[in-house]
Design a protein around this nucleic acid. Structure first.
Lengths: 200, 200
DNA sequence: TAAAAGAACGAACGGTCGTGCTATTTTGAG
DNA sequence: CTCAAAATAGCACGACCGTTCGTTCTTTTA
């Protein structure tokens, strides 16, 4: 081969590191993520891990990005196969709830929102951008449900998105403290009431 | 006086330290609270601060307890002057929302819930106990509102408490990321809808 | 096959962490 | 004013932090 350009091993181990880092960050948050612990978890030297990211902050940003990509792939993409409008909106919520179940209240994105909402810097900006993006997707889905006539015409997408998001926060909060089963049950009851009160 | 026992200075400075620690924990969380930084903030030596609490963990527990006491004094106590039933419930929510405003999304109790919901140990237990206690107060208020005939008789106190709590989580979340003004507006809109759908 | 590039390692740096010890200062009671 | 006790300071420790650097080993390229 003249210019085969074999896949290169670097990016592969970088991805492996990110996978471990993601799991560690789920428990201890991005702020609790340390390079030494991560290296031990992957089975590499500290410097070997460090070399893949120029700094700890870049590592955290990479983990945040990985988490966001996972979330979108796990929640939004599957829901897109549901017919647009309320069915898709309910699918989003269902997938989102399952995501919460799988993660047993240890969601990197949510934890990060709490960790960086008061400070400033690249991580804060990244978190805000991620959250705003997801909120936008939510509002888009709501808008479609309004257009399809599934929700009342005077529905405020931003308002409903806020309430949906709040319920999911409630799920994560209660699941972490009092157990997932109870929280999940209350979540679905709340959603049924929510849909009914906005339905056309 | 035979046994005057002058107030002693120790507890006073301990309280002073706790006050500073509380402010620091609001920004960086209980996990981000370090004795060195705290000592510098108070204007004491590390060991001087350390002596008031046997360990860092005890310091964190003390801060958590102080936060809980502040919360109760700021939110629950003022609301108790409102007539029992729905008015008192609404007063609780109003005070709680003001508490959120004053703290600009930096609430020690909420941050702690996120920090320790996955782990175990004394701090986890303390957080769970605190959260369960407050949830209980909330349910008690709801129960009274039902008894007074202000809320529908088939209202599930735990369910409504969950939804109220979720909305407050939404407030803190959005206030921290997108600004308090917007979040507060959405919160009150959500509450109006919530009361209406449970009202007798 | 020789040279260049990539990837991981190991050791070390300056700092900060929590936590013990021992002085020293401050305080309040007799 | 005295003196014991309480309160604080000072210092040192081991551990871990993120980061840098030089080296080694493997892989690709010329």
């Amino acid at each position: 081969m003249t210019t085969a350009t074999t896949p290169a091993k670097g990016p592969a181990t970088r991805e492996l590191i990110l996978e471990h880092a993601y799991e560690l960050a789920r428990v201890g948050g991005l702020e609790g993520l340390s390079i030494g612990t991560l290296a031990a978890d992957v089975g590499m030297s500290k410097s070997g891990v460090f070399a893949h990211f120029g700094s700890r902050e870049d590592l955290q940003l990479a983990v945040l990005d990985a988490a966001a990509r996972r979330f979108m792939a796990r929640v939004l993409v599957p829901a897109l196969s549901a017919p647009r409008g309320l069915p898709r909106l309910r699918a989003i919520v269902a997938q989102w709830s399952e995501w919460g179940c799988e993660h047993q209240s240890g969601c990197v994105l949510l934890t990060a929102a709490g960790e960086y909402d008061g400070r400033e810097g690249p991580l804060h900006d990244a978190v805000v951008a991620q959250q705003a993006g997801w909120r936008g997707e939510l509002e888009k889905g709501i808008g479609q449900a309004i257009a399809e006539g599934h929700l009342r015409a005077d529905t405020d997408p931003a308002q409903l998105a806020f309430e949906i998001y709040a319920l999911m926060l409630g799920l994560h909060h209660d699941a972490g403290l009092f157990g997932f089963a109870q929280a999940s049950q209350r979540l679905s009851a709340a959603f049924e009431r929510l849909w009914r009160s906005w339905q056309a």
